[in-house]
């Protein structure tokens, strides 16, 4: 397996996310301790780890929902800093799917999807609706367009959230434990959409415990603990030959049930 440095020298043109020595503190609590990460275009990265390890905080730093205090994060050539223009540019290029869906309850399903393209990308209403209908079709809920999010099941709501994020035609999709709040029978329908998305070439970073999904489409799996990356590898190697003790312990906990 190549080192980070080798990777950097050979494939920099294809890099879409580059995080170097990222540190973050919540008050005196050191939640991110020097995280390094490199993602190439089209790659699917899975991040797993115990709760409280900082993995959610980390991906939220990538699209500036949280502010990192040290280190650099570069997304598609744009560095994430205090520059307002940079922040807005980055947020337009990244789509995010949340654990709690965070759909807009006062807007219809179709309006949830068209809102941002109309107001941020300044598309006409017809344009936006056309794209929205295609997306709703793609995630499998075309017939729900005129309903309100509260009337949908959990699985349908999360798929709607994915469509909403895709409407802005982002280059990168971030997933923060997308299936953790779902009833078991609905997890599969959401994972199917995510698999199709991965296979279509979208760059994705997914924080999840769904190892089946990781085995299917992930290019690399990162194990996060205590604010930093403990180890990472391809799925095959990661599950068969975990190197660190902590990784082995974690895997034994989540793979038994």
């Amino acid at each position: 397996m190549m080192s980070e440095v080798d990777m950097e020298r050979s494939d920099t043109a294809d890099q879409i996310i580059r995080c170097r020595e990222v540190h973050k503190w919540f008050g005196t609590f050191h939640v991110l301790r020097g995280v390094d990460l490199m993602v190439r275009k089209g790659e699917v990265i899975v991040i797993c780890g115990p709760s409280g390890s900082g993995k959610s905080t980390f991906i939220r730093c990538i699209n500036r929902l949280e502010e990192h205090q040290k280190g650099t994060i570069v997304v598609d050539g744009i560095e994430v800093t205090n520059d307002l223009r940079n922040i807005h540019a980055v947020q337009r290029e990244i789509g995010m799917v949340f654990q709690q869906f965070n759909l807009f309850p006062h807007l219809k399903v179709i309006d949830n999807v068209t809102l941002a393209p109309i107001w941020v990308r300044r598309w006409s209403k017809d344009q936006a609706v056309k794209i929205a209908e295609e997306l709703l079709n793609r995630v499998g809920i075309p017939e729900q367009a005129q309903k309100y999010p509260g009337q949908l099941s959990g699985g349908q709501q999360q798929r709607l959230a994915i469509a909403r994020a895709l409407a802005m035609q982002p280059k990168i999709m971030l997933f923060d434990e997308p299936t953790s709040a779902l009833d078991p029978e609905m997890i599969k329908e959401v994972l199917d959409v995510m698999v199709e998305l991965a296979k279509s070439g979208m760059t994705m970073i997914v924080v999840t415990h769904e190892m089946g999904f990781a085995k299917q489409v992930a290019d690399r799996i990162y194990f996060f603990d205590d604010g930093s990356i403990v180890e990472y590898n391809t799925p095959a190697e990661f599950f068969l030959k975990p190197k660190e003790e902590r990784t082995k312990k974690f895997l034994s906990q989540i793979l038994t049930h």
Binding site: L65, H88, F98, F104, A116, W119
Partner: peptide, 25 residues
């Protein structure tokens, strides 16, 4: 809920639009 603010930002709305379209309604 705070998630509404985050979703609005994540989808690219600036502060003003977030308030007018999502939070205040």
């Amino acid at each position: 809920p705070r998630g509404q603010y985050e979703a609005a930002q994540a989808v690219g709305l600036n502060k003003a639009l977030m308030m007018i379209l999502i939070v205040l309604p």
